[in-house]
């Protein structure tokens, strides 16, 4: 069943009109690094002028991964679910992506990039994130607030203020699994805690402390 879910990444033209969204998670993320300069922040989304400008203006160094695009390229063509469940291929992928020294980052903007990958790759990716972030640093991630079998809009998350995001459409994708609060805590069990934020829309925000 999970396999079917992974099979769809829409080639439909994305709805590029950005939607503004208040983000308490983003607010908390930046509150934790407030007053510091020269930190290393990882953005797992696609490269965005807004995010580059915002983070470098704060005096930080930004690294961009474009994680989902790298996943799409690395586990294609063919059965993406099977390939993402192949430990050898997952290890090879992580040797080319998220390849940073231990404790390198002071914060990670994960966005929604963990929702669309198979469980084996997901677990390995979270383990890698645990290794490459410093103790006591934070991850900001988004997950669907309700279970959906149909493809959902994927987004490019663009920071327009310390607590405001613009969500630009990036086609549609099917979340592989639905994670309730308990499942998210289990997913990040190696981390110190997971903090959930109430939301009015379909996206749940979480802050994860290493």
């Amino acid at each position: 069943m999970l396999r079917e879910r992974l099979s769809t990444v829409s080639s439909e033209p994305p709805n590029n009109r950005a939607k503004p969204r208040n983000s308490n998670g983003l607010d908390q993320f930046f509150a934790h690094i407030k007053g510091e300069e020269g930190l290393s922040i990882l953005d797992m989304g696609s490269a965005s002028q807004a995010n580059i400008d915002f983070i470098t203006e704060l005096g930080h160094r930004l690294s961009t991964e474009d994680f989902l695009r790298s996943v799409d390229a690395a586990f294609a063509p063919g059965d993406a679910f099977a390939q993402q469940s192949d430990i050898g291929k997952v290890e090879a992928f992580l040797r080319q992506n998220l390849d940073y020294p231990a404790g390198y980052f002071d914060g990670v903007l994960v966005w929604d990039s963990l929702e669309y990958i198979a469980p084996s790759l997901l677990a390995a990716t979270i383990d890698r994130l645990y290794d490459i972030v410093k103790p006591s640093s934070y991850l900001l991630a988004f997950f669907r607030a309700e279970q959906r079998a149909a493809p959902v809009p994927a987004y490019s998350f663009q920071i327009s203020g310390p607590r405001t995001l613009q969500l630009a459409g990036a086609g549609t994708r099917r979340p592989v699994e639905f994670f309730n609060n308990r499942a998210l805590e289990k997913l990040f069990h190696r981390f110190e805690y997971v903090k959930f934020f109430l939301t009015r829309d379909q996206l749940r925000e979480i802050i994860v402390k290493r």
Binding site: S46, A47, L62, S63
Partner: peptide
């Protein structure tokens, strides 16, 4: 938008 960039700035 649309450019693929992986690395640090």
């Amino acid at each position: 938008d649309g450019a693929y960039f992986k690395g640090s700035i």
